[in-house]
Simulated assay, not measured.
Amino acid sequence: MDSNGTRPELPLLVDGSCSAGPLSGGMPAEEAVELARVLKALADPARLRLLSLVADSPTAAACACDLTEPLGLSQPTVSHHLKVLVEAGFLDGEKRGVWTWYSLVPDAVERAVAALPGLGRLARA
């Protein structure tokens, strides 16, 4: 859309075809699969809350045992969400005795956002 909120008129092709030609570029398939996995990890309210709880921790880390109560979820459910966040590269887990302490992976969220090159073009379309 243009600055007036209207879509620009598309040019008609001389030969009357409906195609502007073969499309190239865009995100490679492997990259799209990986980015979808990462975004899927973020696309859950419990996981977003877990990230914010760890980020707001005064020690920059949180024990899994301290994360169940704020979420109101069972320990196995919280552990599952933490595992997804670790596998997606947002959290690191460090075993201390019987508990695992989680900390944010530096710049992980920023890297996920930076991997979205096409969104700027989509927003302007």
Results as ranks from 00 to 15, higher is better:
residue 66 D to Q: 13
residue 106 P to L: 14
residue 3 S to F: 04
residue 77 T to F: 05
residue 37 R to Q: 14
residue 114 A to E: 09
residue 71 L to G: 04
residue 103 S to F: 13
residue 1 M to Q: 06
residue 48 L to I: 10
residue 70 P to Q: 08
residue 40 K to M: 03
residue 54 V to D: 09
residue 114 A to D: 10
residue 62 A to N: 03
residue 119 L to R: 09
residue 104 L to T: 13
residue 29 A to R: 14
residue 110 E to H: 06
residue 33 V to D: 08
residue 121 R to V: 05
residue 20 A to L: 13
residue 16 G to Q: 07
residue 122 L to Y: 11
residue 54 V to E: 07
residue 58 P to T: 08
residue 86 V to H: 08
residue 3 S to G: 03
residue 112 A to T: 03
residue 36 A to W: 00
residue 19 S to M: 02
residue 100 T to L: 02
residue 37 R to L: 11
residue 97 G to W: 04
residue 15 D to T: 02
residue 71 L to M: 03
residue 2 D to T: 08
residue 98 V to D: 12
residue 69 E to S: 14
residue 61 A to I: 09
residue 32 A to L: 15
residue 54 V to H: 03
residue 17 S to Q: 01
residue 83 K to H: 13
residue 2 D to W: 03
residue 9 E to L: 14
residue 64 A to H: 06
residue 58 P to D: 07
residue 125 A to Q: 08
residue 43 A to H: 09
residue 111 R to A: 12
residue 54 V to N: 07
residue 63 C to F: 00
residue 125 A to H: 11
residue 91 L to I: 09
residue 31 E to I: 07
residue 86 V to M: 10
residue 96 R to N: 09
residue 37 R to S: 10
residue 58 P to Y: 03
residue 84 V to T: 13
residue 118 G to D: 08
residue 51 L to R: 05
residue 49 R to G: 05
residue 65 C to Y: 10
residue 113 V to I: 15
residue 92 D to S: 12
residue 10 L to Y: 03
residue 93 G to C: 10
residue 103 S to Q: 15
residue 75 Q to V: 08
residue 116 L to W: 01
residue 106 P to C: 13
residue 73 L to A: 10
residue 4 N to F: 12
residue 74 S to Y: 05
residue 115 A to C: 02
residue 11 P to Q: 15
residue 40 K to T: 13
residue 23 L to M: 04
residue 73 L to T: 01
residue 64 A to M: 06
residue 1 M to A: 10
residue 13 L to Q: 06
residue 112 A to K: 05
residue 43 A to I: 01
residue 104 L to I: 14
residue 90 F to N: 07
residue 7 R to P: 00
residue 41 A to G: 12
residue 60 A to Q: 15
residue 28 P to W: 01
residue 74 S to E: 15
residue 68 T to E: 15
residue 68 T to A: 15
residue 116 L to A: 05
residue 92 D to G: 05
residue 18 C to F: 00
residue 113 V to C: 07
residue 66 D to G: 05
residue 97 G to C: 04
residue 35 L to D: 01
residue 117 P to C: 04
residue 20 A to S: 10
residue 47 R to T: 02
residue 29 A to T: 14
residue 4 N to E: 11
residue 35 L to F: 04
residue 97 G to N: 05
residue 7 R to Y: 04
residue 64 A to Q: 13
residue 65 C to K: 13
residue 42 L to N: 02
residue 92 D to T: 09
residue 93 G to D: 02
residue 122 L to Q: 12
residue 95 K to C: 01
residue 84 V to C: 08
residue 121 R to D: 07
residue 124 R to C: 00
residue 9 E to R: 14
residue 23 L to V: 07
residue 58 P to E: 02
residue 53 L to Q: 04
residue 35 L to M: 14
residue 111 R to N: 04
residue 28 P to I: 00
residue 57 S to M: 10
residue 118 G to V: 06
residue 123 A to C: 10
residue 61 A to D: 14
residue 18 C to N: 07
residue 81 H to M: 01
residue 96 R to M: 14
residue 79 S to P: 06
residue 13 L to H: 02
residue 19 S to H: 08
residue 77 T to Y: 01
residue 4 N to T: 14
residue 54 V to A: 11
residue 63 C to L: 10
residue 25 G to I: 03
residue 78 V to I: 09
residue 49 R to H: 10
residue 74 S to T: 15
residue 43 A to K: 03
residue 77 T to M: 09
residue 24 S to P: 00
residue 4 N to D: 11
residue 32 A to G: 04
residue 10 L to S: 09
